[in-house]
């Protein structure tokens, strides 16, 4: 680890490195320290060609403390959660989980270039937080209107097909225990903010 990524505070207590921050925000033991930079992850990735940096490069950048560059990268947002890298990693690094951590940190610091993917997650979560269930029609139409108005026409054929086959609900379903669910999620967010 280079000393460049470790900056002392005025009191002489060093700040957390970005590497430590990533590890701390990933559940369980993610084994990121064990990465040997072999590149099996990038070679296994089905969407690797569309990423700014391969997962291997991202891990080297995390170690080097390049926080801004890492969090601005599209890499975690192009991760499709297929877990090929995770099962193939010779060092058992929980790569997909780390990609989720990077997404959360990027959202927290608001440093992504393209807001399409984070906005999609937010729209999805809005429905879940208010109804307790996902709502496909609401999610897709709100997302398309915001990010790809032309897509409304492109996707209309598919949408009509889904409706004619009875596969698209027009209204969301609300669970009975929505108040209890909201209390749980609010408490969870409170705990998260404290950490």
């Amino acid at each position: 680890m280079s000393s460049a990524s470790v900056s002392p505070t005025p009191e002489g207590i060093r700040q957390k490195t970005f590497l430590e921050e990533v590890i701390e925000n990933t559940p369980g033991d993610c084994h990121l320290l064990n990465c040997i930079q072999c590149g099996t992850c990038g070679g296994s990735c089905p969407s690797g060609q569309d990423m700014d940096h391969t997962p291997r490069a991202i891990f080297a950048m995390i170690s080097a403390g390049l926080k801004k560059e890492v969090l601005k990268s599209n890499t975690p947002w192009y991760c499709v959660s297929c877990y090929y890298c995770t099962v193939r990693c010779p060092q058992s690094v929980h790569i997909t989980d780390i990609m989720y951590t990077l997404k959360r940190l990027a959202v927290k610091e608001k440093v992504y270039d393209d807001s399409k993917a984070p906005d999609f997650s937010k729209t999805f979560v809005d429905w879940v937080e208010n109804y307790g269930r996902a709502f496909e029609l609401g999610l897709m139409s709100m997302h398309l209107i915001k990010h790809n108005p032309f897509g409304v026409f492109k996707m209309a054929g598919m949408g009509m097909g889904m409706i004619s086959k009875g596969r698209m609900a027009f209204t969301p379903t609300r669970i009975k225990g929505i108040d209890s669910l909201k209390a749980i999620l609010n408490k969870a967010k409170e705990l998260e903010a404290m950490a």
Partner: peptide
Amino acid sequence: DWNCCGATEYVSLNLIA
């Protein structure tokens, strides 16, 4: 009275929630 599992979306925004 089950609720959504969050798919791959919720964990992209909040960990504990």
